[in-house]
């Protein structure tokens, strides 16, 4: 096993009607809009031109848009093979938001279009399809964001040479409570990169969306 330093080359967050990249607010939604409306307005702001977003559940839309923001100006295929880029995400409520919607549809005719989103790792699939990533991926469920575990898991993937780049983070959505914070971690440093450490993950997680450090 190699023990090489990895780097956070970008991070983004989407929460409380705000979208931030590297700690800077880039978009703010209107007040009193629900999760779906806010995510639609963010999608239009980003100009992603990806109509499939309309059929996604809110968890997938949230993760998808957080990664769109994260990869602004980057095309990872220029630096890495598809198998070298992976995704590791986590949240507390898994796919509960989609589960509740699907259960409501069961009262009439169960909807396959809703059913396919009743797993949290579908958001990883949507991101992978969009960016043609084929590397290792995993979705973990924990009560709170566990910086130490995320650092351990991603570092292990790098040290085993399974990945050279990884998008990792927290993507949580249940009704109108949503928060995504994602990091782009690479084995090569870039201008402005931060060391991929537990402390740095913790700091950027708190600083995202204006939370105070401490």
């Amino acid at each position: 096993m190699k023990d090489e330093q990895a780097y956070i080359t970008a991070y983004s967050s989407v929460a409380r009607r705000s979208a931030c990249r590297n700690g800077n607010i880039v978009f703010q939604g209107d007040e009193n809009v629900n999760t779906g409306d806010f995510l639609t307005s963010l999608y239009k702001y980003l100009g992603a031109d990806y109509p499939k977003l309309y059929k996604m559940d809110n968890l997938s839309r949230l993760g998808f848009l957080a990664v769109e923001l994260l990869l602004t100006g980057r095309n990872l295929s220029e630096n890495y093979n598809p198998e070298e880029t992976g995704i590791v995400l986590s949240n507390a409520n898994a796919s509960l938001d989609a589960d509740v919607n699907y259960m409501a549809s069961v009262k009439n005719i169960p909807s396959p279009a809703l059913f396919v989103y009743t797993l949290p790792n579908i958001v990883i699939g949507e991101i992978s399809i969009r960016h043609h990533f084929k590397g290792e991926n995993a979705f973990f469920v924990s009560e709170k964001f566990d910086e130490a575990f995320m650092h351990f898991y991603v570092t292990d993937l790098f040290s085993r040479a399974a990945l050279k780049a990884c998008i990792c983070g927290w993507v949580e959505c249940f009704r109108d409570d949503y928060k995504a914070v994602v990091w782009l971690v690479e084995n090569n440093s870039r201008e402005g990169a931060l060391p991929f450490t537990i402390d740095q993950i913790h700091k950027s997680y708190l600083l995202s969306n204006g939370e105070t450090n401490g």
Partner: peptide, 12 residues
Amino acid sequence: AQLNLKDLKPED
């Protein structure tokens, strides 16, 4: 409606 295409309008 059938595909649950949230926030998409017919004119889209």
